[in-house]
């Protein structure tokens, strides 16, 4: 972004990569897949790179409001300095925080989740998808809480799966009743409290019971949790956990 600004250019959209997308090896693949899609459609985008910092989501949900607001104010200063208008992110937690919690602190942007942007690109004809790679595959979609219940985005990810010609098999607990993967509320960064079972295992069992070949999701943390769940069930050989951006990129042979 700094480079673009130096050249006096303004991107159509700022891609907020997020900490998982920047540092987590699995999530980095999602980042790269999404960037490939952006390149293919020729959308002008920028990333903040080293100027990006945690949105503060895990600090806020963990009860550390001070740290959250420090992060928020710093990020807002950077975003406002670059006069950012539109932000896309592959992480529902970043999406929710910037969209809902930044405006009151002075950061007002149009924020979209990457599944929404891809849907938009398909609808305006910039991106066409041949379903080839996923034709006839059974796919179940795990609703990320911070995309679904938190922000009522249920249809954008599902519309992408339709475009892939895949067979969508819903879990019993889906959409507004979707069961959390277990990572939210800063749980990602701590061991779960003691109980009978890990939440991701419960959710993975439900996903597996649909007989799906692929568990699709739209959140790097859900991805981690479901991937771990699949491993604990020793099903990594025949069931994949994929982000929708990865599926679209694969279908396009990107």
């Amino acid at each position: 972004m700094a480079q673009m600004a130096a050249e006096g250019k303004q991107p159509d959209v700022l891609f907020w990569v997020g900490c998982a997308g920047s540092f987590d090896d699995r999530a980095k693949k999602i980042t790269k897949a999404f960037v490939k899609i952006l390149h293919q459609v020729g959308l002008s985008y920028a990333v903040l790179g080293t100027e990006e910092s945690c949105t503060g989501d895990p600090a806020k949900r963990g009860g550390n409001e001070f740290l959250f607001q420090m992060q928020a104010m710093m990020n807002i200063e950077v975003l406002n300095a670059y006069e950012i208008k539109r932000i896309v992110t592959t992480c529902p937690h970043c999406f929710n925080t910037i969209k809902n919690e930044y405006p009151e602190l002075g950061g007002e942007y149009e924020v979209v989740h990457h599944t929404q942007l891809i849907q938009e690109l398909i609808e305006n004809g910039s991106l066409t998808i041949q379903g080839g790679a996923f034709k006839g595959k059974k796919i179940t979609f795990h609703d990320p809480c911070y995309l679904g219940r938190a922000n009522n985005v249920y249809d954008a990810p599902r519309s992408l799966m339709q475009k892939l010609d895949a067979e969508l098999v819903e879990m019993k607990r889906c959409r507004t009743n979707g069961l959390c993967c277990g990572a939210g509320g800063a749980q990602m960064f701590k061991e779960p409290e003691k109980g009978a079972k890990d939440i991701n295992v419960e959710r993975t069992e439900e996903a597996l019971s649909t007989g799906a070949d692929i568990i699709a999701t739209g959140c790097p943390f859900c991805n981690t949790m479901m991937t771990d769940g699949i491993k604990s069930k020793e099903r990594e050989g025949d069931v994949e956990v994929l982000d929708l951006a990865e599926m679209i990129a694969q279908a396009q042979d990107l």
């Binding site: 990569v17 900490c19 997308g21 920047s22 540092f23 987590d24 980095k28 980042t31 790269k32 960037v35 990333v47 790179g49 080293t50 990006e52 910092s53 945690c54 895990p58 992060q71 990602m188 960064f189």
Partner: peptide
Amino acid sequence: GAPWQMPAADRLNWA
């Protein structure tokens, strides 16, 4: 600036 112990300078390494 990240929940993990990763240096901010490495943020763009994925690229």
